[in-house]
Amino acid sequence: MKKILIFIFSAGFLLLSNIGFAQNASDLRINEVLVTNINDFQDDFGQQEAWVEIFNTSYGTVNIGGCYLTDDISNPTKYFIPKGDVLTQIKPRQHILFWVDDLGFRGTFHVNFKFDPTKENFIALFDSNGRTLIDSLTIPVLAPNVSFGLPEDGIRFIREKDANGQKVTVDLATALPNTTPSTNNHLKDQDSANQRLISNDPTGLGMAATAMMVVFTVLILLYGVFRYTGHYNVKKSKKNALKAQGLPTNNVKESTVVPGEGSGELYAAIAYALYLYQNEIHDEESAILTIDKVTRDYSPWSSKIYTLRQTPTVNKK
């Protein structure tokens, strides 16, 4: 019964953990969308069309092949992103661009639907099972060449306090000041940590003090925990020792029994035993190997008769 329960639990866990998301497609985000492209980025055919940028938020490569793009929530499998195209592999923290031009025959990155610039548009990314929604974005009507997306790559929602002090979820998707197809929406200074340290803490004393504080905090915490567990263990050992001696265990504190502490003679005896043990183990034996004849007086130990097996007897009943 117990084994069956373990099996059911394990199978359930595996099933639950495997729902939907294949190949970590859940790490993908719709990062930026341009609906009306008049004189912005061109595709390989030299045409300016609407585009959608997908961003891989993880630090591992994700293959978007097999997933679906759609502009209709009731039809999640509208555009199947072909599998087997090496270009559908999105490297860690990198982007991929799809042209929304209803020209699917032009290759993997041209979808089979088109946006309507005169009204609000919708775009969604579904996982390879065609049911699990990974991300979606509703794009309002915007001026030509103005894209809509996430100011910070991959970060759509944040939790912050409103005017009443209540924590609310804020959607960061907005019209972006510049179009940045296939590049970061917000270009961070690559060396910002270094630059900030140089400008704010040129001597390094601030950083050294903070870091030492953290080191001490960590080790003080460890000290606290092991001081407590140590006290508990000493108390428990004393109790066990009293129990073994048949003494009452209700006054452990006053007891003089200290487990593990013996007399000096005891330690000396152990040390001497160890010394003898170590000195018994040696490479050169004291016995002498010789070819000279050595005569010994008769002893039953050296008599052949005693080393032979006895003739078996048959018991007859």
């Binding site: 001597t203 390094g204 004393l205 950083m207 050294a208 870091a211 030492m212 080191v215 001490f216 960590v218 080790l219 003080i220 460890l222 000290y223 092991f226 001081r227 140590g230």
Partner: peptide, 21 residues
């Protein structure tokens, strides 16, 4: 057995941050 010795291990890390400065 003597967890307060951990703090000595923390103090010696001054070498790291001293050299950093």
């Amino acid at each position: 057995s003597n967890p307060k010795l951990m703090l000595i291990g923390a103090a010696a890390q001054f070498g790291i941050f001293g050299a950093y400065v």
